[in-house]
Amino acid sequence: MTTSLLLDGISQRTTQTRRLTMAYLATGQGTTPVVLVHGNCSSSLFFQDFMLALAATGSYTVYAPDMRGYGESETLPVDATRGVRDYSDDLAAFVQALNLPPFHLLGWSLGGNIIMQYAIDYPGTARTLLLEASGSPYGFGGSKDAAGTPTWLDSAGSGGGTVNADFVKSLQSGDRGSGPTSSRTTMNAFYFKPPFQVSPEREEIYVSAILSTKVTPGNYPGDTLPSENWPGLAPGKLGVNNALAPKYLNQSALVDIIDKPPILWFHGADDQIVSDTSMFDIGFLGQLGVIPGWPGAQIYPPQPMKTQIRTLLESYQANGGSYQEHVLPECGHSPHIEKQDEVLKLCTEFMDAH
């Protein structure tokens, strides 16, 4: 990694875990570890300012790994048939390699799915779960109600085939321009709520983070299968977007874990990515007329992503867990960047209370 991508006070390291070689950022000298897990089409670089703010409190040592296929970590195929378990197992191997004591765990977007899976598979090791603009526990696309029922048995309308092909080409070519499907334009239009903008320096760092996504058959966006069901494509068995297909991802088991860490769920009121009206959801795009042939709301409604999260967390609480929800007004998909001071206060107060 070029040093120009790292902020003063942030160090980049690598560790060989029992599963893969992982790069990570670290800062702080506090007694309490916090691990931050990034989302899809991003890397640990998106966390740097927030890491420094956490470290400045004096309470925390902060770690942000690059997950497989992102940033500077090793790229290995993602077995989508396991849902996001490849990532949760990688995360477990990471914290074991660093020999971390019980830690707080924050997951942003896809990272939220990863840390929910981690809590299911490795109970009793995370002090709290902080879900930042988390993906739905029933994945992305292809489900139709609060319980996450798949719209079609083959989960048509979810997975690798739903990703904009021009955006994939932009990633492959390392495009740093401002075309309509470039990483830069996508970030400013959807990661943040317009007209929010970061400084030119940060923008270049974040574009580099998005472009670190490895476009390979087994990583991003994943393979696709033809389907007789609208919109004519179904998820394959490899890659990150297929791992989020409801055919393979169902995290309702979170409700039944014995050791239930307290959960903080915070999200932007104007998130266009994880939303009940997501601009990346096939059902909602069909409703808008963007994708032809939509069979209607009775058959293929927009995925109620936030409703699904809230419904699961209400069940989690009813079964003996606890959660808090905070909606940040005038905020998109990246609260820790768009509303850093508010999110810092929210997260530190929650972690300090547990």
Rank of each mutant, 00 (worst) to 15 (best):
P221R: 02
P261E: 02
G283D: 10
Y206M: 08
W230D: 10
P235L: 07
A243Y: 07
W294M: 06
P231L: 12
P226H: 01
D276M: 08
S199H: 04
D276N: 14
D223Y: 01
Y220C: 08
V198K: 01
A269Y: 00
L233V: 14
N250W: 06
F266I: 07
L288Y: 03
T224G: 01
T216A: 14
S275V: 09
S252C: 04
G222E: 11
G239H: 13
V290I: 12
N242Y: 06
P221E: 00
P221N: 04
F266D: 03
P262M: 06
I205C: 01
I291Q: 08
I205S: 00
I210N: 08
P262Q: 13
L264Y: 07
L233W: 02
I291V: 14
K260E: 14
A243R: 12
Q251S: 05
F192W: 13
P200R: 12
P235Q: 02
L285C: 03
I205D: 01
D271G: 02
S212F: 12
P235H: 15
Y220I: 11
P226K: 00
T277C: 05
A269E: 14
N241D: 08
P200V: 02
L233S: 08
G239P: 06
D271K: 01
Q251Y: 04
F192L: 13
I273K: 03
A245I: 01
T277N: 14
T277Y: 12
D223W: 05
I282Q: 12
N250C: 05
A253L: 13
D276H: 08
L264E: 10
Q287N: 03
S212P: 11
D223G: 11
V240S: 10
N229M: 09
N219I: 12
W230C: 14
E201F: 00
N219T: 15
S208Q: 13
F192N: 04
W230F: 13
Q287F: 08
R202K: 15
S199R: 01
P217G: 02
G283K: 11
Y206V: 00
A253N: 15
V274N: 09
H267Q: 06
V255M: 05
H267E: 03
G286E: 04
L211V: 08
F196P: 02
Q251E: 15
A234F: 04
V215N: 07
D256T: 14
D276E: 05
S252D: 15
E228W: 08
D270K: 10
Q272I: 04
W294G: 06
L285E: 09
G286N: 09
Y220M: 11
T224E: 04
G218Q: 09
D256V: 04
S227T: 14
I257Y: 14
I205E: 00
Q197E: 13
P221A: 01
T224N: 00
P246E: 13
E203V: 00
P195M: 03
P221F: 03
S252H: 13
T213R: 09
W230E: 09
Q197D: 07
P194A: 15
V255G: 01
Y206E: 05
F196W: 05
